[in-house]
Amino acid sequence: MLDFGFDKIALIGAVALIVIGPEKLPRVARTVGTLLGKAQRYVADVKAEVNRSIELEELQKMKTQFETAARDVGQSVRQEVDSATQAFGQTWSDVTGDTSSSDATGALPHLSPEYRHPKKNWRLKRGATPLWFKQKSNVRRHTQSGAARVARFRPPHLNR
């Protein structure tokens, strides 16, 4: 930018004092200072926006590089797993002597029974809890209507 030394600023101030006059000089100086501050903020904002756009472009490039690297690793792992599965299926069929246990895709034979959901009876489980534990943990043992519950917990001086 411009290089202003003390002597140049003093010369500009003296000329401004003569041209503008001593009454208007403080107001003009304030206005010039305000405009210079706005210009500096505008330049700083433009620089920051340019830097953000450059960083965004760099981050997008890095993102695409990471995505391609991850995709390549995933494909290589999938290929290795598929080849190992096919080799195991071939070995399994050789050991068992069964040619129908492995299909063309190399899937493993079904070795475990089907999953069955355990039919838990929560009423039976709840009934197996001892009464002393239910009383201690404030579990209701009998159902009560709302009116019976209000009558039960109503203070004695309010009963009629």
Rank of each mutant, 00 (worst) to 15 (best):
W132H: 09
P118Q: 07
I18K: 14
L56T: 09
F88M: 12
A84K: 05
N51A: 15
W132Y: 10
R27G: 12
A104D: 13
V77Q: 05
Q90P: 00
E23C: 03
D45I: 12
V77Y: 02
R27T: 11
L56R: 11
R116Y: 08
K8Y: 03
V139N: 02
Y42E: 15
Q79N: 13
L35E: 15
G21S: 04
K134I: 03
F6L: 09
S53K: 15
V28D: 02
D94E: 14
D94W: 00
R154A: 13
F66K: 07
A70P: 00
R123G: 12
F88T: 10
A147V: 08
V19E: 09
R149N: 06
E57F: 04
K63W: 01
R52F: 14
H110K: 15
M1I: 03
I18A: 13
G146I: 03
E23G: 03
W92V: 06
M1W: 05
P113Q: 04
K8Q: 14
T99Q: 11
V15R: 12
Y115W: 15
D3H: 08
F133K: 09
M62Q: 14
A16P: 01
R140N: 11
R126I: 02
R30M: 12
D98G: 01
T129C: 11
R78D: 12
V73G: 00
Q135G: 06
I12G: 01
R78L: 11
R123P: 00
R152C: 02
K120C: 06
R140A: 14
G5V: 06
A48Q: 05
F88C: 04
E80H: 03
T105K: 15
A107H: 10
F153M: 07
Q40F: 03
R126L: 13
A39I: 06
L11M: 09
G89Y: 02
E80R: 09
V50L: 12
D82R: 10
A14N: 10
R27D: 14
T64V: 12
T31D: 13
S112A: 12
D94G: 09
E57W: 07
D103G: 04
Q40C: 02
F66Y: 12
T91Q: 13
P109N: 02
P118W: 01
S93A: 13
G21F: 02
G37I: 02
R52A: 15
Y42I: 07
D72N: 10
V28R: 10
K38S: 11
A10T: 10
T68K: 11
A147T: 11
A10N: 05
K24C: 04
L158F: 04
A69G: 03
F6D: 15
K125P: 00
K134Y: 05
T68G: 00
E67R: 08
A48W: 02
G97Q: 01
G127R: 08
G127P: 00
K24S: 10
V73N: 06
K120G: 06
P156V: 10
